[in-house]
Nucleic acid binder design. Structure first.
Lengths: 171, 171
DNA sequence: CGGCGACCGTTACACTGTAACAGGCCGGGC
DNA sequence: GCCCGGCCTGTTACAGTGTAACGGTCGCCG
């Protein structure tokens, strides 16, 4: 649908993100621990799906993932990827970016209940996941006031990340 | 994709929503004023699209709208609806619900800059639009702290609306 | 063994969204 | 008037997103 630059992530990042292989290994380890603890099946497909998502620095569509998982003789259908993604999102290992129909690895070990804020950069396509107790609180207050019982929350901000603002000025 | 109940809105509502024809007329009037002021073209297709969205009490997909706009001999293609919706969203007359790929009428006269919080009920499918300066503030603070320059904001909460909680207890 | 459940492959299909081109309509400039 | 341009709409085509349904495999348990 849209092709962003190849950058996808900002090295020399101002805050601490695990990147590439490091983050991937962390996430896989977390998944294995979680599967162990809860008696879930962290199958090969699910693992490979998680690795593909984690290795990428930007949100990936299900069909992109399917393509990366496919070998010349061994094609992985998108529907299989969707099922793997269902598992991974259910257990907080990846997040779905609703405004992009795409998926990113979870960058926090956040306990199930919490909700994240996603900062999506228009220029480089990177996605930053942050948590703010303050936002959470004001949301809760608003919801309580409206008599609304929340089940899941989606907060996605589109704009320009710090790195890209600098890059922009440099031109 | 998903079919919710026929209810779509809660009468005896605890807060003030214009509904059905009333809301529709208001929105159309607002659109006409706006087109007048800015020299825009509020065409028949755009008007009818707005009416269809406003008359419904729940988010409508583009193809649903196309279907409602079509008469036996006069079919309206989805792509035309998308273009009308682009116009309407650009000017704040309807909102897109990213988590549903669907559209709802704007329930506020909110000045362009503000962002809304959408409360989406899982049971009846209704969508409530509210604004909270407090949420806005905490979001702004978080964004500033991250050095992120926002362009558009999406806040969508899925859960159970007040009316449906009552209905649930009654069963 | 037989059944059950979870996972995965496969097909088919519905829905979402955009690109590209063509025709109509209207206003302004000559 | 006439032409030109812009804007809107119709049409076709297509890429991407997502789910339903069926069947097969494997492991487990009675």
């Amino acid at each position: 649908m849209d092709e962003h630059g190849t950058c996808g992530h900002h090295d020399h990042a101002p805050h601490d993100h695990a990147h590439g292989p490091g983050r991937t290994a962390d996430l896989v380890a977390r998944a294995e621990r979680l599967a162990q603890d809860l008696g879930l099946q962290f199958t090969a497909l699910r693992r490979r799906t998680l690795e593909v998502v984690a290795d990428e620095g930007r949100p990936l569509g299900a069909y992109d993932i399917a393509e990366r998982l496919s070998a010349p003789g061994k094609r992985v259908a998108a529907v299989s990827v969707y099922r793997a993604l269902d598992f991974l999102t259910e257990h907080g290992l990846v997040h779905r970016i609703a405004s992009r129909n795409a998926f990113v690895p979870c960058e926090h070990g956040h306990g199930a209940g919490e909700s994240a804020v996603f900062l999506i950069c228009r220029r480089c396509g990177s996605v930053d996941e942050t948590i703010s107790a303050e936002i959470e609180r004001s949301l809760d207050r608003t919801l309580a006031q409206a008599g609304f019982k929340p089940a899941s929350r989606i907060v996605e901000i589109e704009g320009e990340c710090g790195a890209c603002q600098g890059r922009h000025e440099a031109e």
